[in-house]
Write a protein that binds this DNA or RNA. Structure first.
Lengths: 175, 175
DNA sequence: CACTTTGTTCAATATTTTTTGAACAAAATA
DNA sequence: TATTTTGTTCAAAAAATATTGAACAAAGTG
């Protein structure tokens, strides 16, 4: 029943021997490490994603630990987070008890997850803070109040623009 | 010649006594600390920006250190970085030897700096990496090549969209 | 010129974040 | 049932990042 090949075309047993990467694999993983850092994820997340990107078949937790020389804890946490942003999914391989992990088909899903779970809440939170400030400015004397309101006005305006562009960002990058 | 008032309406000498913040000031600074963290700046940068946001007049390096209870080194570095993204500028106050720092009038300038000096180079770098990968994929066997190209194609496509939306982002947030 | 004031730099320190690995729980096996 | 296999959690260790502070250079002052 278990017809899943060991990863890549190497003859050495993938689970016990770590590393052994093609130049191409290294470069792929490197790319996703950068992307991870770019959006504020730990680089181990990028490594995992990169490894799955290069892999032609779903990998188990142990595969990932072994090939990336990474602890089970890290791999587990990373996979959990990546699943959280829909970057990775679990595949059930009949006849194998272990979970197998692979990429969600589309990079857009990852971006959608990132936008919806990080970017948008962040912007919403800023909006609430700006509103809260705006309310409290009323307690100031007139001169101070005006000056403060000027600056807050610009900030509020900027925030409005940020909200305005979000749907387009989401449509293009995650739609 | 020196007609710059001490910051805020407090009677205590601003330079020697740290803290002494209004609730409003605390909340403002807090807001900008969040914004800083949001875009990956150290929180000290946010503190400085927030303090300048609340201040009705340009502050000296020492003012900033004293009020934020922050070392000269941090303040100096933070101001340098903030000037780098056009968030803060130096004002010369005749009769005062010290530099005085204040916000650039427009938050848009900050965003422009951030977009141009962080976001865009990051995206450009990703593009180069993706291209480099694409070239090397040619060395693979046919099956592998196809699979890799499929995934890379999606990635490249996504990157194209990211580039496409950048001008709009820049126009709305930093224009 | 010697002395002060001001801002910068960078090695050392402190803080924050990430990673590890051992303990644990859940589920499968025998 | 006891044993193994698998994945998660979280306190502790390691690594990365930010902050400090003392040494320094540049420019002003007397």
């Amino acid at each position: 029943m278990k017809q899943v090949l060991e990863p890549e075309s190497l003859s050495s047993p993938a689970i016990t021997s770590p590393q052994n990467f093609h130049a191409l694999e290294v470069e792929s993983i490197d790319l996703f490490v950068r992307i991870a850092q770019f959006i504020g994820f730990p680089k181990s997340y990028g490594e995992i994603y990169g490894l799955l990107f290069t892999s032609s078949n779903p990998l188990s937790l142990d595969d990932i630990c072994a090939r990336l020389n990474m602890s089970k804890g890290s791999a587990s946490q990373g996979l959990k987070a990546l699943r959280g942003v829909h970057a990775v999914k679990i595949t059930y391989v009949p006849g194998d008890r272990r979970d197998r992990f692979e990429l969600e088909g589309n990079i857009r899903l990852l971006m959608q997850g990132f936008i919806q779970e990080r970017l948008e809440p962040g912007i919403r939170d800023l909006g609430m803070r700006i509103e809260s400030l705006s309310l409290k400015v009323n307690d100031l004397q007139n001169g101070e109040k005006k000056r403060y309101n000027d600056r807050l006005g610009k900030l509020r305006n900027w925030h409005k623009q940020a909200q305005k562009i979000m749907p387009a960002v989401e449509r293009l990058l995650g739609g």
